[in-house]
Structures are given as C-alpha cells and as structure tokens.
Simulated scan of single mutants.
Amino acid sequence: MKRYLFIILLAISFSVHAQPNAANYKYIIVPEKFSFLKQINQYGLNTLTKAFFEDKGFRVYFDNTEIPEEIAADRCKALVVDLQEKNSMFVTNVSLLLKDCKGAVVLKSKEGKSREKEYATSYNDALRDAFTSFNDLKYVAGSPTPTTSAVPSNTNTETKTIPVPADQPLATKTEKQEALLYAQAISNGYQLIDATPKIVMTLLKTSVEDCYISNNGNANGIVIKKNGTWFFEYYKNNVLVSEKLSIKF
C-alpha cells in the first residue's frame, strides 16, 4: 500500500513541476541574427520564422525592436526562438528551439534537412522542414501565461521533441501570378508595379543575393530566386504558399 501511495505522490510531483505548454505563451521573441550565422536576417531565416509563428496566432517581436511593457516587466511571459545548425558535407540540418526565460528548452523541432547546394535555398528549405514539427502548435487565447514562479529554479527540465515521420512532406501550395510586374528601385530595395500602374508588393534588400523581405499588403514573406524563377513565399493557415512571379527589373 505504501508503495502505491509513493507512486501516486511521485506522479503528482511530476505534474506540478512539468514544463509549461508552449501554446500557453502569448509572446515569442525572434533574434535578429541566429548565432551560427554572420549577418542580420541572413538568408531571410529570421523574417521567415517570425511570419511562421505570427500565422500560429502568437505575437512575435524581433529582439532589436521595442517590446510591449508586459514583456519588458517580465521576460518569462515570452518564449525565445533559437536555431541550431548541424551540417554534414552534403546536407543542411537545422533544429528550431523555443526556450523560456531561464534558457530551458520548452519545445524542440525535428532536424529539418535539405540537400540543395545554394545556401539561401538550402537553409530556407531545411527551416521549413523543421517547421512541420509545429504543425499542431497554436496559441490558445486566454490561456494562463507561465510566470517566473511557474518552474522552480532547481527543476531539471528535459527537451521535448515533437516526433514527425521522416518522410512526411512539407505542406505547400503553389500559385502562379500571370501578370508581369515591373521593379521600380527605391532606397532600400524595389517596389513591384503592375500595368495599372499600381504598387502590388515591396521588396526590401537583404544580405543575400536574389532574396528580399517582402510584403504584398496581405502577407509578409520573402521573394527568392530559384533556378532562374522568382517566388513569393509566405505562410497562410499553416500552409506554405509559394507564388510564382514574373518580374522585369
């Protein structure tokens, strides 16, 4: 009898000290530069990460921007994104981590992989592959957000990895824009104009050739050149949308 009582008490103890669910957090902070890369928003990875979690219902901020007073007063109300690289000779591997204010890993994705040779394409494809681990993640409005006292400082936390079958394809929806768009130079990039003429999209320069931070008025994403063809890529309802563009520079 004592043995069963001990097991019950042990189970209760584990439930009290369990890690908070990432979906209970309202805010996510994305660094402007991932630690293994040399430049800010290199390959557009930081912007892509921000757009992904915004589509999940979270309020997402870069770490170099002004953050809400609620987070400034208590950093433990936000999760921080980290990206880890583990490359081999022919494969790009990245894992996405969500950490709490103490640096403990709350969620970790599978290793996203890509065999593309071009760095910009390879890192973007690998990151999107890692995103599939978070397909079911969604911010639940009104859920209690863990505070500093939610996890005792001496609690040993473990990384929670969401299993995803290795052969699971990335959900992608490809759309084609037939109209020719004309690129008009601006101070920090281009604006794309249709035949009306009307500005339909802005392209902001990045440190990567043929890769731009983009906005079409409805979605934030990136415009990237793949095999000589331009694409506008963004997330909509948890699905990666890739719009083929016809641009005349």
Results as ranks from 00 to 15, higher is better:
Phe6Leu: 13
Ile7Glu: 01
Ile8Lys: 02
Leu10Glu: 02
Ala11Lys: 07
Ala11His: 08
Ala11Ser: 13
Ile12Tyr: 11
Ser13Val: 11
Phe14Gln: 13
Phe14Ile: 13
Val16Cys: 06
Val16Trp: 14
His17Cys: 15
His17Met: 15
Ala18Gln: 13
Gln19Phe: 11
Gln19Pro: 07
Pro20Thr: 08
Asn21Leu: 14
Ala23Arg: 10
Ala23Gly: 09
Ala23Cys: 09
Asn24Pro: 04
Tyr25Asn: 03
Tyr25Gly: 00
Tyr25Trp: 01
Tyr25Ser: 02
Tyr25Met: 04
Tyr27Met: 02
Tyr27Asn: 00
Tyr27Arg: 06
Ile28Cys: 06
Ile28Lys: 03
Ile28Gln: 01
Ile28His: 06
Ile29Phe: 03
Ile29Glu: 01
Val30Thr: 06
Val30Leu: 01
Val30Asn: 03
Pro31Arg: 08
Pro31Cys: 08
Pro31Lys: 04
Ser35Trp: 13
Phe36His: 14
Leu37Ser: 13
Leu37Gly: 09
Gln39Ser: 15
Gln39Arg: 14
Gln39Val: 12
Gln39Tyr: 14
Ile40Arg: 15
Asn41Ala: 01
Gln42Phe: 00
Gln42Ile: 08
Tyr43Gly: 05
Tyr43Glu: 07
Tyr43Met: 00
Gly44Ala: 00
Gly44Leu: 03
Gly44Met: 06
Gly44Glu: 07
Leu45His: 01
Leu45Ile: 05
Asn46Ile: 11
Asn46Ser: 10
Thr49Tyr: 02
Lys50Ile: 07
Lys50Met: 14
Ala51Ser: 00
Phe52Ala: 01
Phe52Pro: 05
Phe53Val: 06
Phe53Gly: 02
Phe53Pro: 02
Phe53Trp: 07
Glu54Leu: 10
Asp55Leu: 05
Lys56Glu: 03
Lys56Thr: 04
Gly57Trp: 10
